[in-house]
Design a protein around this nucleic acid. Structure first.
Length: 426
RNA sequence: GGAGACGUGUCCGAGUGGUUGAAGGAGCACGCCUGGAAAGUGUGUAUAUGGGAAACUGUAUCGCGAGUUCGAAUCUCGCCGUCUCCGCCA
């Protein structure tokens, strides 16, 4: 959530930055500014009335103590009148406040100056490519066929148990996923991230904190009976660990990692994009999250990008890094780098990680602050990234590493998986 | 799920309608004492937001929300959480 004081002092800049996103409701900026002015005016009126009520009530107390009942009754009448006046002000104040916060929640984050203009994924900027795309043999198959052949994932049974878009991992497939999770977590904790195992459901306040609500309401599974949401990413519970806290300056940066299942309704997704492991309602992911001092957040973003990049190098996958354009960037982000791996049999780039700096957009909602060098409390910056999303990594590994003999396991993973090859009779 | 107890500042802990933003203690900071330290001693020690150059000052906050009252940490109701007993249970 943007800060109203910043919006007021930089109205033109805010509009200009929002335009980079192709944000359709730029008019909200001016609306918010005038709403805020009106809000302040009415607040002042209400507070002044309250001040009169407070002081006079104290006087009544003193008069009662002295036994001057009549004088006390006179003052009571005055207070009652003020309170009636205040009641009407409060009613309109409340309505204004609701309108104001409702509208403020609709404003997305301001894109960083390095964010390219653009509307669609085609306008994203390729920052760099790494790794080499393998030459596949003649009988090479897309992963959804490999999975069947090696009996690694059973989509039919997944669909029977839960519905389409739910996978049942099986045998070596399940073990491959488990070994990747273990490897990713070890890699992250070795880099100084503290491991968490968070709740997979969160309440409304938590979902607002990281910005999933109200923007992505329809994307989350909602357990209405208990007013809980299934998390779409570990970012939600883990970033909120420090919500409403003023952390010690010496505790920064706070580095956290978590493995979790992620749940997404993916309403309206169709076509070949969703085939096999490419898009699921439930998938596994390991996430890294940092809370940092504002002045360091862009250095930290680069550090996190490097961290994820090295992981892909260890997995020996061909990858590229994209700087997302304004139109493709998430609601809460100021700058996002996406990582894609090339899945050689489907000849397709698959997004496996998204590393973002949210600056104060999330921490303003969560009120995560620290006392800076001058002793002033200040919002920290929050960042996160996937390291990594499992199903698409598995898809790319299966496709890129297939051979007549079986599927090769990258060296870095062999100790975790317990073998160098997944054999056909497996 | 049933019955009961409880939820106060960094921590412990007082406070059942009126100078209580909140006693007292611990902790912390600064000063005195000391050769130095400990002990002792003095002072200070919440957050947010509005006004003000500042001193200072208005408002809100004793789990959260609503209500009663001229006035609520104190009374009433709802919610959340913690603990104890019972039930159920991986």
């Amino acid at each position: 959530m943007l800060q109203i004081n910043f919006i007021k002092q930089n109205a033109d800049l805010v509009k200009e930055r929002l335009a980079v996103r192709n944000f359709a409701h730029i008019g909200l900026v001016d609306e918010l500014i005038s709403l805020d002015e009106e809000l302040r005016k009415q607040k002042l009126v209400s507070e002044n009335l309250q001040a009169s009520v407070n002081t006079t009530s104290k006087e009544i107390g003193a008069l009662m103590a002295k036994g001057e009942k009549e004088a006390a009754e006179e003052k009571k009448a005055a207070v009652t009148a003020w309170k009636e006046e205040q009641a009407t002000v409060k009613t309109s104040l409340q309505a204004l406040e609701e309108e104001f916060t409702g509208k403020l929640l609709l404003l997305p984050n301001l894109p960083h100056t390095s964010v390219p203009k653009g509307k669609t994924p085609e306008d994203n900027e390729v920052v760099l490519e790494g790794g080499t795309v393998p030459q596949l043999f003649a009988g090479a198959k897309p992963h959804w066929d490999i999975i069947k052949e090696y009996d690694l994932v059973d989509f039919e049974t997944g669909a029977k148990l839960a519905g389409s878009g739910f996978a049942l991992f099986k045998g070596k497939g399940a073990k491959l996923q488990r070994s990747l999770i273990q490897y990713f977590l070890d890699y992250n904790t070795a880099a100084g991230y503290t491991e968490f195992a968070p709740p997979l459901m969160v309440n409304e306040a938590t979902a607002y904190g990281t910005g999933q609500l109200p923007d992505k309401e329809g994307q989350m599974y909602h357990i209405t009976e208990d007013k809980l949401y299934l998390i779409p990413t570990a970012e939600v519970p883990v970033t909120n660990v420090y919500a409403q806290q003023i952390v010690k300056e010496s505790d920064l940066p706070i580095k956290m990692t978590a493995y979790s299942s992620c749940f997404r309704r993916e309403a309206g997704s169709f076509g070949s994009d969703v085939r096999g492991l490419n898009r699921l309602h439930q998938f596994e992911k390991v996430e890294v999250i940092q809370l940092v001092k504002p002045q360091h957040s862009y250095e930290v973003l680069e550090e996190m990008v490097n961290h994820v990049e090295r992981l892909l190098q260890f997995l020996e996958l061909p990858y590229r890094i994209l700087r997302l354009c304004g139109g493709d960037m998430g609601f809460t982000s100021a700058l996002t780098y996406d990582f894609e791996v090339f899945s050689a049999a489907q000849q397709k780039w698959l997004e496996v990680s998204s590393v973002s700096n949210f600056e104060t957009f999330q921490t303003n909602r969560m009120k995560i602050r620290y006392k800076n060098e001058e002793g002033k409390t200040e919002l920290v910056h929050s960042l996160n990234g996937s390291s990594l999303a499992l199903p698409r990594i598995i898809a790319a590994l299966l496709e890129n590493n297939q051979s007549e003999n079986g599927i090769h396991i990258p060296k870095a993973l062999q100790a975790y998986f317990g073998a160098a090859l997944i054999e056909k009779n497996g």
